[in-house]
């Protein structure tokens, strides 16, 4: 494993190794050891061409706990927001000796362009690309589910998960579908037909337009952020109608299984896809997802960078 561009890059065993490593790292960094020397002398660049404070901070915390040097390269509004210079940026990072680039980019596939071309030799970690994938988010979601619902199992076999909302534009949903099904979970996508991708019937999931039918049947429910601009693109008539059909409110929380957990990748639109009392209910693991994110990203960084440099780069 040289890069983490897509969940497709991971075998089931590799995914489980990341979760296991994250679990061990969580235990030692919650307990005795706050900081590990493992990546001392390694340089990790956070290349964020799109706003995402929480993902950037999470990767930064993970890198620093492993003693890596972190360079933040936030490029919103700079030349990087025009695609022409991604190549130049990559070559600059190469010249600065970046061992890994954590990239968030509005263009689907931008991390693939970084990794596939001979622009730079370091590892590339996809921290969210356009409407394509967000693999580290899916890994932390799977980690959170396994921790709460796994009953000691290595994978998520038999777990029933609903992902609700704007599947069409969601990189979180894409990565989660790939990862959760790889780990044996049954995934149900719940959304208005306008917000489901073309050809979703060929995905290894169940599709439903009716949240109330799905709610009592799941162990975990993941609410996706609805972006305000989707309304202007006529994906649904009004925020109120969306909330009525697809929002998680108190009644729907009460209809959940007693042990079911509520997840959200954040940032939340309280009142639109999730009400405040649902987000803050005892079932919610939304805040814990954030702390799990650091452990999972530490595991990813360790497994990509902790070992010998992989052959095949330009150097």
């Amino acid at each position: 494993m040289k890069h983490l561009l897509s969940i497709n890059d991971l075998s089931r065993d590799e995914a489980i190794l990341i979760l296991d490593t994250a679990a061990e790292l969580a235990r030692i960094s919650d307990g005795p050891m706050k900081k590990l020397p493992t990546l001392r002398g390694r340089t990790i660049v956070n290349l964020f061409a799109e706003d995402s404070t929480r993902t950037r901070i999470s990767f930064e915390a993970a890198a620093k706990r492993l003693s890596a040097d972190v360079i933040n390269f936030s490029a919103k509004g700079s030349s990087l927001s025009k695609g022409e210079s991604l190549k130049d940026t990559a070559q600059t990072l190469q010249a600065m000796g970046a061992d890994a680039v954590v990239i968030r980019h509005p263009a689907s596939g931008a991390p693939f362009r970084l990794a596939d071309n001979q622009w730079m030799s370091g590892a590339v970690i996809n921290a969210g690309d356009g409407t394509h994938e967000h693999p580290s988010q899916a890994l932390l979601d799977a980690y959170t589910m396994r921790k709460h619902l796994g009953k000691g199992a290595k994978d998520l076999a038999g777990l029933r998960v609903a992902i609700v909302g704007d599947i069409l534009h969601s990189r979180v949903a894409r990565s989660n579908v790939l990862l959760l099904t790889k780990l044996g979970a049954h995934v149900t996508l719940v959304a208005p037909p306008t917000l489901l991708p073309f050809g979703v019937d060929s995905w290894p999931v169940t599709v439903s337009y009716d949240l109330d039918l799905v709610i009592p049947q799941v162990d975990a429910i993941m609410m996706l952020r609805i972006q305000q601009e989707r309304m202007h693109e006529i994906f649904f008539p009004s925020a109120r109608e969306y909330s009525r059909y697809f929002g998680l409110n108190r009644d729907r929380v009460n209809a959940l299984n007693p042990n079911a957990i509520i997840m959200h990748p954040g940032p939340m639109n309280r009142g639109l896809e999730i009400t405040a009392d649902a987000a803050d209910s005892a079932r919610s693991v939304i805040v814990e997802q954030v702390s799990n994110g650091v452990s999972v990203r530490m595991a990813i960084l360790y497994l990509l960078l902790g070992g010998a440099p992989i052959e095949g780069g330009i150097n």
Binding site: L17, D20, T21, E24, L25, R27, I28, G31, P32, M33, L36, P37, T38, L66, Y302, L303, L304, G306, G307, A308, P309
Partner: peptide, 27 residues
């Protein structure tokens, strides 16, 4: 006490899975 993350030969081999570090309550 797992030593994996503190080894000085990390960069000469592929990364290994971590093994448990379990410190008794007395520290």
């Amino acid at each position: 006490l797992d030593t994996t993350m503190h080894r000085d030969d990390l960069r000469t081999r592929s990364p290994k899975a971590l093994l448990p570090t379990l410190i008794p309550p007395a520290g």
